[in-house]
C-alpha cells in the first residue's frame, strides 16, 4: 500500500470521526423540528463529548477490567467499520481488509463487548439491556446477511468496494430485488442503531430501553467513547446503505482532489438520509420488545424475497 493511499485512508477515518457526531446532531435537530420542539444546536454532540471527556470516571465497585476495556474496543470496531465502508472512495487500502460479511462480524464483535460490559457490574438493568441487545442482534444479523447476499449476487462480489463500483458505474438497470433489499436494510439499520420502532435513543424509561440500559453504569470518558462509537455506527450504517443503494458520487481513486470532490455528494446524501431517519422515527411508535422479532422477521423475509426475485427475474439469459 502506498503512502498516498494510506493518507487518503486516514483522511477518510478522520472525516468519519468528525462527521459522525454531526450526523447524530442533525438527526436530533430534524426530530426536534418535526416534533415541534426547539432544536438543540447542530454541534450539541461535540459539546457533550467534550463535557464527558472532562468529567471523572465513576466506576462501580464491581466493575472489572473488561468493563474498562470495552468502550475502547467498541470504539475501535466502529473506527474500523468506518474505514471499510467506502464513504469517499472505493479504492482505499483498508477496503479489502473486510468484505460485507466481515463487516457484519465487526458490528457483532462490538455488540458482544458492549453486552458483556453491561453484564459486568451485575445490575438488574445492565443484564436486561445486554440480553435485549443480543436478542436484537441475533434477529438483525441474518436479515443483514441476506441483504448482503442479494447485493452480492448482483455484483458477483461481497466486497463493498466492488459492489459500489458495479452498481454505480454500469448502465442503468432496474433491480426489483434491490428495492426489496433496500427496505429490509432500512428495517435492520433502524434496529441495529437503537432507533425508534425497536428502541428509543431518548428514553430512560426502565422497561423500554435497550441501548441505554446497557450503558447506565458508564460515565466520563468511557461514556463519551461509547456515545461517539454509536454515532460512528450510525454513520457507518448510513454510509453502507448509501453505498449499496445510492452508490453515485463515490470517488474511484485515492487522490485527494477526487476525495475532496466526493465530500459534497456524501454530505448531501447524509443530510437527506438523516432527515429521512428523523421522519421515520417521528411517524412511528416504539414497539413492545416482543414485536421486534416480527419486525426483524419481516426484514429477513423481504431480504429473502429479494434474493429469490433476483434468482427468478434477473439471472435468466
Amino acid at each position: 500500500m502506498n503512502v498516498t493511499g494510506f493518507l487518503a485512508q486516514l483522511f477518510a477515518i478522520a472525516l468519519a470521526l468528525f462527521l459522525a457526531p454531526l450526523l447524530t446532531g442533525w438527526v436530533n435537530m430534524c426530530r426536534a423540528w418535526l416534533q415541534n420542539r426547539t432544536a438543540p444546536p447542530l454541534l450539541q454532540q461535540y459539546y457533550m463529548l467534550h463535557k464527558l471527556f472532562n468529567k471523572d470516571v465513576v466506576l462501580a465497585h464491581g466493575a472489572s477490567s473488561l468493563f474498562r476495556t470495552a468502550p475502547f474496543i467498541v470504539f475501535g470496531c466502529m473506527v474500523l467499520a468506518c474505514a471499510i465502508v467506502p464513504t469517499l472512495s472505493t479504492d482505499l487500502p483498508f477496503a479489502p481488509a473486510a468484505d460485507t460479511i466481515a463487516l457484519v462480524g465487526v458490528f457483532g464483535l462490538a455488540r458482544i463487548f458492549i453486552s458483556l460490559a453491561a453484564m459486568d457490574v451485575g445490575t438488574s438493568f445492565g443484564t436486561l439491556g445486554g440480553r435485549r441487545e443480543m436478542l436484537v442482534g441475533f434477529l438483525a444479523e441474518p436479515a443483514l446477511l441476506m441483504v448482503i447476499f442479494t447485493t452480492a449476487l448482483i455484483s458477483q462480489s461481497t466486497s463493498v468496494a466492488t459492489i459500489v463500483e458495479t452498481l454505480a458505474r454500469r448502465e442503468f438497470a432496474v433491480y426489483p430485488s434491490l428495492a426489496f433489499a433496500g427496505v429490509a436494510f432500512t428495517f435492520v439499520s433502524l434496529a441495529e442503531n437503537a432507533r425508534v420502532p425497536v428502541d428509543n435513543p431518548a428514553t430512560h424509561l426502565e422497561l423500554t430501553m435497550i441501548h441505554e440500559a446497557m450503558i447506565l453504569e458508564y460515565s466520563g470518558r468511557h461514556l463519551a467513547l461509547i456515545e461517539w462509537a454509536s454515532s460512528l455506527k450510525l454513520y457507518a450504517y448510513s454510509c453502507l446503505g448509501l453505498a449499496l443503494f445510492f452508490p453515485w458520487g463515490v470517488a474511484a481513486g485515492d487522490s485527494f482532489p477526487a476525495l475532496v470532490a466526493s465530500i459534497p455528494a456524501l454530505l448531501f446524501k447524509l443530510t437527506i438520509g438523516g432527515a429521512t431517519l428523523a421522519a421515520i422515527e417521528t411517524v412511528n411508535a416504539k414497539m413492545r420488545i416482543f414485536r421486534a422479532p416480527e419486525f426483524l422477521g419481516t426484514a429477513f423475509l423481504l431480504a429473502v424475497l429479494g434474493l429469490l426475485v433476483r434468482l427468478l427475474l434477473e439471472t435468466r439469459v
Binding site: L59, A60, H61, T123, G126, L216, E217
Partner: peptide, 12 residues
Amino acid sequence: RVRRTQAWDCGY
C-alpha cells in the same frame, strides 16, 4: 481520573 462508588442502576 477514576473514582469508585456504588453502582447507579437508575437509582434502583
